[in-house]
Every structure is written in structure tokens, then in C-alpha cells.
Design a protein around this nucleic acid. Structure first.
Length: 272
DNA sequence: AACGCGGGGAG
DNA sequence: CTCCCAGCGTT
């Protein structure tokens, strides 16, 4: 079967999306900064959690200048609870990068995929998401949801974590916008993966089931191909909670290495 | 190419 | 409880 997203497929997707898409605080926003904030958070966190942090973030850092001028400690404080704290640091770096590279206030943000990729903390996913949603730039998002959808749609058996696979999907999807707004098409694919083409999908109500290779061959359970699970080593250790005069001792770990830069009680990890 | 990073949800 | 998830920077 040809690995092409036809006009019919794209149209069916968008009809479904118009009816089933979820409302989100940043959806439909014309502010690229708002889009960027939401995508940085959505990289690792589900929509319901991001909604709470998004409002708090925008209130505290209303624009890219507020973020760039803030102290890193304050940035981390607002991010606290989201995890992946290196990303908050990179986001802060990214805001400084944007401000430093601004030529005038009418060209504050990059408007294409390639220039967004240069921003610290912004990789292929975020560059495609922000440039397409905020600037209609035709770059496809290839996130985990999308990979699962495409693996089924085209019966792609190769490992979905390889660069080759990623590049192929990027090219297929970049030819599949068919005149629709790239940002909305991207969001529609992700929404389909999030609501319909889930790990355990409900194919009977899927708008693309007649186009789906895995469904037509009754092989939905075989895609995406399962990857070998990596074994995570268990670390054993002890924590000492040291109190004096109503105060508790906490220490900060070195920036590099395991749990870098995070605060902790006095910990001793066995073997270190 | 492989690894580490932090939470939350599902079973 | 245990398992599963996922983008980016680093090595």
C-alpha cells in the first residue's frame, strides 16, 4: 500500500476534529508565546495537568521578556511539580535566546521550523508544533501519538524509535496538509491519537478506519511494533533528616549527573 | 544510537 | 503495588 496521506483522509480527519476536539486555554490563541509555553509543558505532561500550570505560568511570566528577565530560581519555582527540570532551565535559556536575537518587535519570534529548531530546548516536535500552529508553517509534528497512528494507518513494522522512521513520517505528513491550516492538521492527528487511536483503540468509531491498513487486515494489535523494555537498575540508599532549631538540613546536588541540581535531605546512595 | 530525566494514569 | 508513557540534550 502507498504511504500517502490522501486528500480524503485529511478531510475525514478534519471533519472528525471539528466535532470532537477538546477545548484548551491555549487553543486558538494568536500569541506565539502562549503556544510555546503550552507545547513546552505538553512535551511531558497530559492536558489536564498542563492547564493548571499554564495559567499560573502566564500570570507570572506574561510574555517572553518577563521570562527572559526572570531569575532562574523563580522560573524553577513556578515549574515545580512538573518534573524534567532541565527543560525549565532550557526554556529559560530559550527565552533569553529569543530576546537576544530579536531585531525588532514585529519579528520577535521565528516563523519557520528551521529557525525554531535553533532555540535552546526546542527540538523537532516543539519546532513543528509552534511554527505550524502560530505561523501556519507546513511542518509536521511527529510525536508519540502520531507515530502510533501512522504505524497502524500504514502497517509500518519498523521500530518507531529510529531516526529513519521519524524522517519518513515527517516527509509523508508534510505532503498531507492538502490546503488545511498545518497547525490544525497537526493538532488533529495528535488528538486522534489521544482520543481515538489510543494504545487500546476503538476502531469502530474511527473516522479513518476505512483507510487504515492495520484495521482492514485485523492487525491493530500488531502495530506499533513493541520495543524491548529496558531494565532500570534499582538504587539503594539511605536518607538522613537532620533537624536543628526548627530547621531541616537540605543540600543541593551537583549540576551534573544523577538528579542534577535538585535539593535533597542528606542522602547516601549505596555504591556512590 | 543509547541514556537520563519526573511525574501521572491505568491495570 | 507495577507497568507504561515521551521529547530533548548529552554522550
Amino acid at each position: 500500500m502507498q504511504k500517502i496521506i490522501s486528500r480524503d483522509m485529511c478531510n475525514a480527519l478534519m471533519v472528525w476534529f471539528d466535532e470532537h476536539r477538546r477545548e484548551m486555554p491555549w487553543r486558538g490563541s494568536a500569541d506565539p508565546y502562549h503556544i510555546w509555553v503550552s507545547e513546552m509543558m505538553l512535551q511531558q505532561t497530559q492536558v489536564a495537568t498542563v492547564e493548571k500550570y499554564f495559567h499560573k505560568w502566564i500570570e507570572r511570566f506574561p510574555d517572553v521578556f518577563a521570562l527572559a528577565n526572570a531569575d532562574l530560581e523563580n522560573v524553577l519555582k513556578v515549574w515545580e511539580g512538573l518534573g524534567y527540570y532541565t527543560r525549565a532551565r532550557n526554556f529559560h535559556k530559550g527565552a533569553k535566546y529569543i530576546v537576544a536575537h530579536t531585531k525588532d518587535k514585529h519579528a520577535l519570534f521565528p516563523v519557520n521550523y528551521e529557525d525554531w529548531l535553533k532555540v535552546p530546548g526546542v527540538g523537532p516536535y516543539t519546532a513543528a508544533a509552534v511554527s505550524s500552529i502560530a505561523f501556519k508553517y507546513p511542518a509536521a509534528v511527529v510525536d508519540g501519538n502520531v507515530k502510533r497512528v501512522m504505524a497502524r494507518l500504514f502497517c509500518l513494522g519498523d521500530s518507531i524509535s529510529t531516526q529513519k522512521y521519524h524522517k519518513m513520517l515527517f516527509e509523508i505528513m508534510n505532503e498531507g496538509f492538502h490546503g488545511h491550516h498545518p497547525g490544525w492538521v497537526n493538532q488533529a492527528w495528535m488528538e486522534l491519537g489521544s482520543l481515538q487511536c489510543t494504545p487500546r483503540p476503538n476502531c469502530s468509531t474511527c473516522p479513518l478506519n476505512e483507510h487504515c491498513c492495520a484495521y482492514k487486515n485485523d492487525q491493530v494489535a500488531d502495530f506499533p511494533r513493541k520495543s524491548e523494555k529496558k531494565k532500570i537498575p534499582t538504587r539503594y540508599g539511605a536518607a538522613f533528616i537532620i533537624e536543628k532549631d526548627d530547621k531541616v538540613l537540605i543540600l543541593r546536588r551537583p549540576e551534573e549527573g544523577f538528579l542534577g541540581g535538585l535539593w535533597e535531605y542528606r542522602i547516601h546512595i549505596k555504591g556512590t
